[in-house]
C-alpha cells in the first residue's frame, strides 16, 4: 500500500467496515438481498458492481465540470446504463447460466442506490483517481456483505459452497449428514436474506457502540 497516501487508503478501507454502504449508509439493498442464495452469484454480482462503480465514478468525475447540474441525474443514468449493458452482454457471452440466475438484477444495477449515491456524494466533487478509489472501496464493502450473506445462505441452505458439497452428500448420507444433520431449506427462501443482514447489522453495532442509532 506504499503507493497510496493515508487519506487515499481511508477511501478504500472505510467502506469495508465503519462506513459500509449496506449496513451503515443503507444503500443498494435491493440487489444485495435477492441474489444471495448462492455464493457464486453473490461474487459475480460484487464484481459487476465494482466494475460499474469504479469506471462510472471515473467517467462522472472527468465530466463533473461540464455536466449542467439540472440534468445531472439523466447524465448519470445514461453513463450507468451504458456500463451495465457492457456487463450484461459480457455475462451473457461468458456465463450464460449465471446470467439467467441473476435475471433482471443485472439490469437493476442501474438503479442501485450505491451507484447514484457515490456519484452524487463523491464523484461530482473529486478528481478521477480519488473517485476511482472511492468507487472500488464502496463496491468492495458492498461485495463483502454480499459474500458473507451468500456464504451463510448457501452453506446452511444447501450444504454447499460454490457448488462443492462441503458438508458431505445429503443423499448418500456421508459427512455431517451421517450423524443426522439436515439442510435448512428455509435459508434459501428470500425472507432469510433480510434476517441474515439484520443479524450482521446487530453484530456490527454491538461491536462498535458508536454506530448505534437513537431510535
Amino acid at each position: 500500500m506504499a503507493l497510496l497516501s493515508k487519506k487515499d487508503r481511508g477511501l478504500i478501507l472505510d467502506p469495508l467496515a465503519d462506513n459500509n454502504p449496506i449496513t451503515i449508509q443503507v444503500l443498494g439493498i435491493c440487489s444485495a438481498l435477492a441474489i444471495t442464495a448462492q455464493l457464486k452469484a453473490s461474487i459475480v454480482m460484487g464484481i459487476s458492481v465494482m466494475f460499474v462503480l469504479g469506471v462510472g465514478n471515473v467517467v462522472i468525475s472527468l465530466m463533473r465540470n461540464i455536466i449542467p447540474s439540472k440534468i445531472r441525474i439523466i447524465v448519470q443514468l445514461v453513463v450507468v446504463a451504458a456500463l451495465v449493458i457492457i456487463v450484461d452482454q459480457v455475462l451473457k457471452a461468458f456465463a450464460y447460466e449465471l446470467s439467467k440466475t441473476l435475471s433482471v438484477f443485472v439490469g437493476l444495477i442501474i438503479t442501485n442506490c450505491i451507484i447514484m449515491g457515490r456519484f452524487e456524494a463523491f464523484a461530482l466533487g473529486n478528481g478521477p483517481w480519488r473517485s476511482f478509489l472511492d468507487g472500488i472501496g464502496n463496491a468492495a464493502g458492498y461485495a463483502l456483505i454480499l459474500v458473507v450473506v451468500g456464504f451463510f445462505r448457501e452453506l446452511l441452505g444447501s450444504g454447499t459452497l460454490l457448488g462443492f458439497k462441503v458438508l458431505g452428500d445429503p443423499i448418500a448420507k456421508t459427512g455431517l449428514y451421517a450423524i443426522g444433520y439436515e439442510n435448512n431449506g428455509f435459508m434459501l427462501l428470500s425472507p432469510m436474506a433480510l434476517i441474515v443482514v439484520g443479524i450482521i447489522i446487530w453484530v456490527q453495532r454491538a461491536r462498535n457502540k458508536a454506530l448505534i442509532e437513537e431510535n
Binding site: 439484520g198 446487530w202 453495532r205 457502540k209 448505534i212
Partner: peptide
C-alpha cells in the same frame, strides 16, 4: 436491544 435499534 440497542444495537438492533433503527435499521436492524
Amino acid at each position: 436491544p440497542a444495537p438492533l435499534r433503527g435499521l436492524g
